[in-house]
Amino acid sequence: MVEAFQNSFLGPYVGYVAAYVILILAIVLPLLIGVAYAVYADRKIWAAAQMRRGPNVVGPWGLLQSFADGLKVFLKETIIPAGANKGVFLLAPIIMFTVALLGWAVIPFSAEMVLADINVGILYIFAVSSLGVYGIIMSGWASNSKYPFLGGLRSAAQMVSYEVSIGFIIITVVLWASSFNLNDIVLSQKGTILGIINMHMFNPLLFPMFIMFFISALAETNRPPFDLPEAEAELVAGYQTEYSSMAFALFWLGEYAAILLMCALMSVLFLGGWLPPFDWAPLYVIPGAIWLILKICFLFFLFAWVFATVPRFRYDQLMRLGWKVFLPLSLFWVVVVSGYLMFFTDKFA
């Protein structure tokens, strides 16, 4: 498509930019609609878990609820606290939102459908997802108020702690796939289990890592049971207490976009990405993007399920889990996996 644009009347430079702008929009617009429906799905799943109906008034089955909320937020007045550090205060939600969208650039939707097929794709996602903390910590500091500040500090410590174990978990998968490229990681899962299942998840050596990655992803995206940064009972709403209107909406969108990104990353690393679950020819007729979206939906359901059922952790327990349980375990598992690959396979030969 990029070549076609470059060869058209637009010329090589304008055509290049135009083609990429269209490709980026082709990812971002469905993503934002997906985020709106993720919020709706979240509320419906919690409602179902609590025997309620959930949103059901706006549109058929309440399907337009998120858009109505978005419109309402859009029309409200932006209030900037007098004591706030204005520049940083306004920059924080923008960073949060942008960073959540950045990671999607390297997610492969099929063998060809990937915006930037770079060599170090997984490192790129890891780098970008570690930036999300800046949005939170900056908003916490710039609000110049107690609760946001405490929320920001909590979140910074939490995200840095869990990133370490996420890094080691990613390394085990990278060792298995012997590549940092996300498309190679997806393809390495083709028929790995019994020659028929296209998933790393059912690999006995990687399954514990999948569980740990899921829990770390909950912590990384500040989802319950690890939503300490915005624990209502203690911190009002944490770092977003002072935000209103569109700035608040950007946090909200960014949060859900980050959750969906984590789901996408998990499906790429452990559930076979755009590959169908079984290595069976008729299943390949369905486009890869559909499989990926189905897997993301499944994982998102798990996220919402956890939200509806598990009580919040205490902060010291959260830190204990991150540093004293996950970090040694994942480090040990890197040794186990590399030892297995070294001595029982010919991968490193």
Binding site: L123, Y124, A127, S130, V133, I137, M159, G167
Partner: peptide, 13 residues
């Protein structure tokens, strides 16, 4: 990428 992960993602935080 390592620079961003280590310095921006951890040290600067």
């Amino acid at each position: 990428m390592i620079l961003v992960i280590v310095y921006v993602g951890a040290v600067a935080v």
